[in-house]
């Protein structure tokens, strides 16, 4: 058999890789298009601004939008400072030791645990033991625990990628460690840290199992952190699983997908602004 010329081999490999990439992107586009196709026609202004009627068969999803924003927003507000602080501590304030190894190992283990387990823990600990009940707060705390490892690890990577030379220069100019960390390291690592936080926000928004067990599935508009609230993802799950209304399920999914897309675009825009204008 004649051997392929390097040129032909190259072309074959490139086309195979192109097809694989196209398949990945294609599947994604297909799923999104499918849901938007079935869902968007039902996404009306009323749908976005009204409360559900008869378990979601009619009416809108306004309380779920509010609930999702509260639960996920609060989760990230809690997890981000703790996660970033942990990463700073691990990278800048300790030398590698058994303790840092244990913390890192713990974070990796936590990251691999299925969300339902976090849900169960949140249910037992926040909801029952601490008496928070099925509430926005229980849900947010549970999600915060769930995304914490991601934030720690992504921040840590971002911080480690900051060249050692910057630290030397900063010390060389007489800065303290804290000044070095806040003005040089966090500044330079910001894009990476930010990406981790946005990823975590996305994960919190799309989580179902963990919020079902902790934030509950009440249909009403939550008026405080101690109210139960159903998130969009959970609402979608319940609507479709219980066959309440497939069109409303698709419409809810459309809203979910679009908000995650918008969130990502906004995040990247914001990040560019933060990085472009160094102060």
């Amino acid at each position: 058999m004649r051997r392929l010329s390097p040129r032909t081999a190259q072309q074959i490999v490139v086309s195979i890789m192109w097809m694989l990439a196209a398949a990945t992107v294609g599947t994604l586009v297909f799923i999104i298009a499918f849901i938007l196709f079935h869902g968007l026609p039902h996404v009306t202004w009323e749908f976005l601004t009204q409360s559900p009627v008869s378990m979601g068969r009619k009416g809108g999803i306004f309380p779920m939008i509010v609930g999702t924003a509260m639960v996920s927003g609060l989760a990230v507000i809690i997890a981000a400072p703790i996660g970033v602080a942990t990463a700073v501590y691990l990278t800048e304030y300790t030398r590698e030791s058994r303790i840092t190894a244990v913390i890192r190992f713990g974070a990796d283990c936590l990251a691999g645990i299925p969300s339902i387990i976090f849900g169960l823990f949140g249910f037992v600990f926040f909801t029952i033991t601490l008496g928070m009940g099925l509430s926005v707060l229980s849900g947010a705390l549970t999600l915060a625990l769930m995304v914490l490892p991601t934030i720690v690890r992504t921040s840590e990577e971002a911080i480690r990628a900051v060249p050692y030379a910057y630290r030397e220069v900063s010390y060389g100019l007489g800065s303290t460690r804290w000044q070095m960390v806040t003005r040089v390291v966090l500044q330079s690592a910001m894009p990476g840290i930010f990406t981790g936080i946005v990823l975590s926000l996305g994960r919190s928004i799309s989580e179902t199992a963990a919020v079902m067990l902790t934030a509950g599935s009440a249909l009403g508009l939550p008026s405080s952190l101690f109210d139960s609230s159903r998130t969009l993802a959970l609402h979608f799950y319940i609507l479709s699983r219980e066959g309440v209304s497939m069109s409303n399920a698709y419409a809810t999914a459309s809203v979910l997908i679009i908000s995650i897309l918008v969130l990502n675009v906004f995040a990247y825009w914001l990040m560019h602004k933060l990085v472009r204008k160094p102060r």
Binding site: P163, A165, E168, V169, G172, V184, P278
Partner: peptide, 13 residues
């Protein structure tokens, strides 16, 4: 003060 081998300005203005 110290000047290093590689030019290493901060990624700032």
């Amino acid at each position: 003060g110290m000047v290093f081998q590689k030019p290493n300005p901060f990624p700032l203005s």
